[in-house]
């Protein structure tokens, strides 16, 4: 997987071609263009929910830290990896500004 270096100011948003629905705590995503489905677990679904409005990587991590009480460094590393994965699959768009 190609990692995208994310700074605090990097803006992250959903791609318009990806639609979603909640399934209990999870989320089902469908990329309309490719026809691929993705399933996100509870934490992934929470991140997806936060991305309903585009926001910076810093804002995203701050929200998750507040919600899950995670240590800042660990949170940034995990979220960075997750966002890079979503970006590689064409689910989100990352704008380094």
């Amino acid at each position: 997987m190609t990692h995208t270096a994310l700074s605090e100011e990097t803006r992250i948003g959903r791609r318009e071609t990806v639609v979603s629905a909640d399934v209990a705590d999870d989320a089902i995503l469908l990329d309309i263009d490719s026809g691929y489905f993705f399933q996100l677990n509870r934490t992934g679904a929470r991140i997806w929910s936060l991305l309903e409005e585009p926001q910076t990587f810093g804002q995203l991590c701050a929200s998750l830290q507040e919600q899950y009480g995670m240590e800042a460094g660990l949170c940034q590393a995990d979220v960075s990896e997750f966002v890079a994965d979503l970006n590689a699959r064409g689910i989100v768009q990352v704008d380094k500004g």
Partner: peptide
């Protein structure tokens, strides 16, 4: 859970 997930995926696909 499986039935609901599959149904949700199908509904999404039809809406898309």
């Amino acid at each position: 859970r499986q039935l609901h997930t599959a149904g949700t995926a199908n509904n999404l696909q039809l809406a898309a």
